[in-house]
Design a protein around this nucleic acid. Structure first.
Lengths: 185, 185
DNA sequence: CGATGGTTTTAGATCGAATTGAAAGGAATG
DNA sequence: CATTCCTTTCAATTCGATCTAAAACCATCG
């Protein structure tokens, strides 16, 4: 091994650090908190099962914080608890399949954020319907407002039904993207 | 008009209020601030060109706040400035096409959030390449780490290239979704 | 020009979300 | 069954982002 080549351990360290930072920046995109993202990023990029103390030391955050965020990550299904024989501590490791992780996050966000919105939108639509408003529903402004609600509802419903189709398993996402990519040919 | 039917103005008022609230809740999904979302929601659902004073009164927020958020919305391309003859004030109105709005938001977020991430990821990949690390790049742990970075890079690159294809115009999104929906048949 | 009507900037106040630290809770061990 | 080692919970705090109000700015009109 030549001296001119950088030290492997140092490089991994650096990459891990960059990656954690990157994951933190992505947190808003995934709809999770920055620290939650950091922890997950660390577990993903190291590929190892780490204990709470490992994580605390590595990221410089408190025990309570780590504990709560690990619970949430487990809830989302992004990490798993692992037991090591002869060690009372819990260890945690990330899923390793990016497609699966992505699908998981997407379907969680759909359930938590899109579904309630769809319900509210349907209510809005009902309030503007001729059944509710009677003859005055024909007024131009009402019609326009109804159209706008309806347009949005159509778009979200379409995405909703597609996501149901493609997010049932992590294979679905792959299938969908490949289908779209084919169009390039 | 029967007395049993609700008052049209009141219903519109109510719908507009619900809609603004809904839009506010959606803000995190779109990656914009809650107030920015509220303002845009109000402009979209009323379908009218409103002045800053209208918006302040309707949403109960300060002038400076409205001003800053209107600028941002205009930057994103979600709203347009409109002039009325014989009135010195500026009026603002929302785009009315949900597909176009959606496309706009998606491509902005891609540019602001995904592109920098792709760059960092490529750097990570380079740091782990055999060219940088020499023989030690063959170590199991390094290989695994490289695979994880590469997997992520593949997923994001694929989405990136698809989005370039489908987000060039708002027609693209429609086309993509219809393509996917066809698979149902 | 100065006054008027309108918009943007900015320094400080406010608010909610994230974080900490310490105490309570639980399980394995001798 | 008491001790030890971990984990979880939670009230208090911190911090960042957002918002306000007031001052600075700008353009048009008389």
């Amino acid at each position: 091994m030549k001296a001119s080549k950088p030290d492997v351990a140092a490089v991994r360290e650096q990459v891990e650090q960059d990656f954690v930072g990157l994951w933190r920046r992505m947190s808003s995109l995934w709809g999770i908190s920055p620290t939650m993202a950091e922890i997950h990023g660390l577990l993903y990029i190291t590929g190892a099962a780490l204990s709470m103390d490992d994580i605390m030391a590595r990221l410089g955050i408190s025990r309570g914080n780590v504990s709560m965020n690990l619970s949430k990550l487990a809830e989302w299904g992004l990490i798993r608890r692992v037991h090591k024989r002869g060690d009372r501590r819990d260890y945690y490791e990330s899923l390793s399949d990016v497609w699966e992780m992505f699908t998981l996050v997407a379907s969680q966000r759909k359930r938590r954020e899109i579904d309630p919105i769809l319900n509210t939108l349907r209510e809005c639509k009902d309030h503007l319907s001729p059944e509710t408003l009677g003859a005055s529903a024909a007024a131009d402004q009402v019609q326009e407002q109804r159209r706008r609600v309806q347009d949005l509802l159509s778009l979200l419903s379409l995405m909703d039904s597609l996501s149901q189709r493609f997010f049932v398993s992590h294979r679905g996402l792959r299938a969908a993207l490949e289908l779209l990519a084919q169009k390039d040919e």
